[in-house]
Computed example of a mutant assay.
Amino acid sequence: MTDAEELTLADEIVARARIHAREVVDEDELAVDLEALEWDVSERARRRAGLCRWDADREVATIVLARRAYDRYDWPEFAEIVRHELVHAWEFQRFGESGHGDRFRERAAALEAPRYCESFAEPRYVLRCRSTDCDWRAARHRASKPVKAPDRYRCGACGGSYEVEHADSGRTWTTASGYGGAKAALGDEW
């Protein structure tokens, strides 16, 4: 085998996923057209373990699996992600759309696949309600608008104000200027 022909980790991931797909796809439970299914591996994905894209013009579903998730999970956990994405592929192929509703939930349960895939990365930010009688929290991986300017947004449960915490440092802020101050103070540790 020459250097150009060496198999990569991405090749391994796709090969294992294809084999698993052939094992779980059947006409009764999950009639996915494997010929109209493409596979890819994301080297960049940091929180989403997998996704399924639909190209309606070509009528082809593409399952993209995250290399970092493959590294983090044991195969049985990663296989659940593959089955989850196969359910999306089935919905796209059969109905032209996919979501996490009742139809998805029923099919995923039959395949012992999770309805929602957990993020495999720790959040960079945590939003927390400041009201003493509310325990609303939300995790964020990017500096979204609510992270950068929390004073413009409200708690998702009670409507109160919230604070944002930079998970690695523990620094918190409640305003846009607080965000800027925390970012400046942390410098390279941001």
Rank of each mutant, 00 (worst) to 15 (best):
R142D: 14
G101T: 02
E118Y: 03
E163L: 12
G160L: 07
Y153D: 09
E165H: 07
R105E: 12
A121K: 12
W190V: 06
L51I: 08
F104G: 13
G160I: 06
Y70Q: 00
D33Y: 08
V82G: 02
L111M: 13
R22D: 04
G159Y: 08
R137L: 11
C134G: 14
K145V: 05
V41Y: 01
F95S: 13
R107A: 14
W90P: 12
E6A: 10
F120W: 00
D135R: 14
A56M: 03
R67N: 05
V87L: 08
A10I: 02
G101H: 06
E97H: 05
E29R: 15
R107E: 04
L37F: 03
A110Y: 07
G156P: 05
K183D: 01
C158I: 07
E43Q: 12
A66H: 10
P150Q: 14
Y73S: 02
L111I: 04
A66E: 08
R68A: 14
H141C: 07
A56F: 13
A79N: 04
P150I: 02
T174Y: 00
Y179R: 06
W190Y: 10
C117K: 03
A10K: 12
S119T: 13
R103C: 02
F120G: 09
T174K: 05
A56P: 07
A109K: 15
A89H: 06
E85W: 08
W54C: 04
D135N: 11
D151Y: 02
V24R: 07
G99V: 02
R58D: 15
A176V: 01
Y73G: 05
R22P: 00
D3K: 10
E6N: 03
E12G: 01
A61T: 08
G178N: 08
R107Q: 13
V32E: 05
T62G: 06
L7R: 13
E85P: 07
L86W: 04
F78H: 03
L86S: 14
R137K: 14
Y116L: 15
E77W: 11
V60D: 05
R94K: 15
R67M: 09
F78N: 08
A66W: 05
M1F: 11
T175S: 15
L86C: 11
P114L: 05
L127I: 11
D11Y: 12
R46D: 06
D26E: 08
V126S: 03
G50I: 11
A108T: 03
A31G: 03
R46V: 09
V24F: 06
R48G: 10
R83Q: 11
A157T: 14
D3T: 13
H84D: 10
D168N: 14
T62F: 09
T172L: 02
R171E: 07
L34R: 07
A10F: 00
A21C: 09
Y116T: 13
G101Q: 08
S131D: 12
R53S: 13
W173H: 03
G159V: 09
V126L: 15
A113P: 09
H88V: 00
R152Q: 14
E122D: 15
R128F: 05
S144T: 15
S42V: 01
Y125T: 01
E165P: 10
H20D: 10
V147E: 01
R103Q: 07
F92M: 00
D188W: 04
L37P: 05
R137W: 00
P76F: 06
W136N: 11
A121Y: 03
Y162F: 15
